[in-house]
Computed example of a mutant assay.
Amino acid sequence: MSNQIFTLRVNGADHDVADSWLGESLLDVLRDRIGLMGSKGACTQGECGSCSVTVDGSLVCSCLVMAATAVDQEIVTIEGVAPVGAPSDVQRAFVDAGAVQCGFCTP
């Protein structure tokens, strides 16, 4: 498979991706190439939502999106929702409820 360099804008910063193949999922690139571990790979079928990110303001399952198709778009992961040490209301609710991972199965 052919590798090509492309740049993704994630959480307000540009990240050059040089070691990915063009069909690789956004989830895998975020975790394995950029090092953002907040999005989780669970079902790999877009069913559970544990890999959810926003791309240009639309919520997507990153396991179903090819990373190279997100070039020139703003990607926001859970790490980019709020500054470090200042959790958003949703993040605070997860902590208060004892939610784990993505919270998909949290009652």
Rank of each mutant, 00 (worst) to 15 (best):
M1R: 13
N3V: 10
F6V: 02
L8M: 09
V10G: 01
N11R: 07
G12A: 12
G12W: 03
D16Q: 12
S20K: 03
S25M: 05
L26G: 05
V29R: 02
V29A: 04
V29Y: 04
L30V: 09
R31V: 12
R31G: 10
D32H: 10
I34W: 03
I34G: 01
L36S: 00
M37W: 05
K40M: 12
C43H: 00
E47T: 05
C48M: 09
G49K: 01
C51H: 01
C51T: 02
S52P: 00
V53N: 04
V53T: 05
V53Q: 02
T54P: 00
V55A: 11
D56V: 09
G57P: 09
G57W: 03
L59K: 12
L59P: 03
L59N: 14
V60A: 10
S62M: 13
C63P: 10
L64P: 01
L64D: 06
A67F: 03
A68D: 04
T69M: 11
V71C: 11
E74Q: 14
V76Y: 03
T77L: 05
I78G: 09
E79D: 15
G80Y: 06
G80W: 08
V81W: 04
V81F: 06
V81D: 04
V81H: 05
V81T: 14
V81A: 15
P83A: 10
G85V: 07
A86K: 15
A86T: 09
P87A: 10
S88A: 13
D89I: 00
D89H: 06
D89E: 15
V90T: 09
Q91P: 07
F94M: 15
F94T: 04
V95M: 11
D96K: 11
D96M: 10
A97Q: 08
Q101V: 11
G103Y: 06
G103K: 05
T106H: 13
T106D: 11
